[in-house]
Simulated assay, not measured.
Amino acid sequence: MRTLLTAIFAVALLLISLTQPAFADGDIIAGAKVFNANCTSCHLGGGNVINAAKTLKKAALVANAKDTTEAIVAQVTNGKGAMPAFKSRLTEEQIASVAAYVLDKAEKGWQK
């Protein structure tokens, strides 16, 4: 019995390590298109032309508590400060895809 549980655990760990992180059902490719059409004027390359401390780089996302899908979705949906709300311009699916794209790019250091 112990061997069986160990084998099941090992298989589960293997499967988890082979999967890519899920970003709230967001589509990264679609998110890139939406981001490029709506966000690059302020956030080109993960930067922020309005407030240099609030970039989309991983360290800034963590420091500003915007490093989760939920936090990015809320920010894009409702806006805050100088950032406008996009809830009337983008669908929930588009916003989720943008969040997935931003998190993916932040993990990769905004490199191509």
Rank of each mutant, 00 (worst) to 15 (best):
D25V: 07
G81V: 10
N38C: 02
G31N: 13
E93I: 00
Y101S: 09
A37I: 00
Q94Y: 07
A71D: 01
L90H: 06
C42F: 07
T77W: 11
P21N: 03
I72C: 02
C39H: 12
M83E: 12
A85R: 08
A65D: 15
S17D: 11
G26Y: 08
R89D: 03
T6D: 07
L18I: 03
V49L: 11
G79A: 07
Q20S: 15
T77Q: 09
N78L: 14
S97V: 05
V49T: 13
R2F: 11
V11R: 15
V62L: 00
N36W: 04
K33H: 13
A24M: 09
A63Q: 04
L61S: 08
F23I: 05
L15I: 09
A22F: 06
G79M: 06
D104W: 14
R89V: 00
T55M: 08
T91S: 15
G26A: 14
I16D: 08
K80S: 15
T91F: 07
V76S: 01
F86T: 05
S17C: 07
P21C: 02
K58Q: 13
Y101V: 02
V34Y: 01
C42G: 04
A106S: 11
Q75Y: 12
L18A: 05
F86G: 01
N64V: 00
F23G: 01
L14E: 02
K54Y: 12
E93S: 01
A60Q: 11
A99P: 00
A22I: 00
T69M: 03
A74F: 10
G46V: 04
C39Q: 08
A106R: 02
I72P: 06
F9L: 15
A53V: 09
L14T: 11
G45T: 05
F35S: 10
V62S: 02
T19C: 06
V102C: 04
L61A: 00
A65W: 12
A85P: 10
N78E: 12
I28C: 13
T3N: 11
S97H: 07
P21Q: 03
T3V: 08
C39T: 07
T68S: 15
E92Y: 01
L18E: 05
A12V: 09
R2H: 14
E70R: 06
T3M: 09
N48P: 06
A63V: 12
A71H: 00
S97M: 01
V102I: 12
M1T: 10
E70M: 05
G81I: 10
I28W: 13
T6V: 15
D104T: 14
I50N: 05
A12I: 15
K105P: 02
Y101H: 10
A106M: 06
